[in-house]
Design a protein around this nucleic acid. Sequence first.
DNA 1: GGATATTGATCAGTATGCTGACTATCAGTA
DNA 2: TACTGATAGTCAGCATACTGATCAATATCC
Lengths: 167, 167
Amino acid sequence: MIPRLPAATENSVKDNNDMPGHLARRFQQIAVAVFLAEVNEAGFDLTPVQYAALAAIKANPGLDQVTLAGLIAYDRTTITGVIDRLVQKGLVERRASSRDRRARELEITDEGRRTLRKITPAVESAQGIMLRGLSAKEGEELMRLLRKAIAAGNELSRAPLRDGQAE
Amino acid sequence: MIPRLPAATENSVKDNNDMPGHLARRFQQIAVAVFLAEVNEAGFDLTPVQYAALAAIKANPGLDQVTLAGLIAYDRTTITGVIDRLVQKGLVERRASSRDRRARELEITDEGRRTLRKITPAVESAQGIMLRGLSAKEGEELMRLLRKAIAAGNELSRAPLRDGQAE
DNA sequence: GGATATTGATCAGTATGCTGACTATCAGTA
DNA sequence: TACTGATAGTCAGCATACTGATCAATATCC
């Protein structure tokens, strides 16, 4: 039994739908759900975060965790657990670096490479489903605006994006 | 020492910047950081999630947890902890419902009302900062596109938005 | 009315994300 | 070389989010 709800306009300064923060959370929530559904259907058990990390490791062999964190804008304390799980699944190897004994070098395994290859269609499909309410033009525009807003706010989170070049 | 990174184009099917899922995650990450920074600066200790729940409870006195979850698109298992913390902080009261002994009725306290009132400027400021890279027109367009994409994907997450009316 | 299904809330377990602290190591300098 | 500061990684602790299970209570159907 759903209780009748008053108009709820009296004191709400703004509707949730006018709050970019709320919309961001909601869109992200849907994006993750769609990603997991598509990837599961394809027979894999990989989160969006793990996928992004795996792809970045493949593209940048031997990189260390801090560099990886910067490439995909993760907090360095989050990376530890993500890599743990990728290693656990046999998709990544973590070795001590010879150059710097503090650092760990990350390497994708053959199994990881195979997984990436086979999972790609599901990932691409997921990206399409997230935007299924929009025309192609609108989807492009949404991504453009997100990129622009993100670029302006990059330094505001603890885990900003770093492009990997010398700063 | 940042290792030199290869071009990273060879095998990446898409750049992260072309993945709506990645952009969603990143924008949300910034949105949360901005919210917390603004609210902290105003002297409060409230998360975006707690704020949204508190505002919804104020606007809909006596609602139960499932209805609240639907109004702000939270999973019902997440709501339990959120309400715990709001009760802990003295901002919300949780009472057994007389109509339905399974349900808990939620009520905002005077302290909660006071907090909401005083925190509002910080929340509004945060919404502006999230969009600071965009013109007013672009900000509007971003929100429009997000709303549209979200509406189309609403049922794809475990915690869809429910408008509170009979379905 | 009684069996069945559904629902509200919670819980255990897992995975991000963050803050702040800590260790080990490295880099630069006096 | 000893001191200082910065850096790579980890950890403890907290707050979302979710899956799947359970319990109690309510609804529904025969």
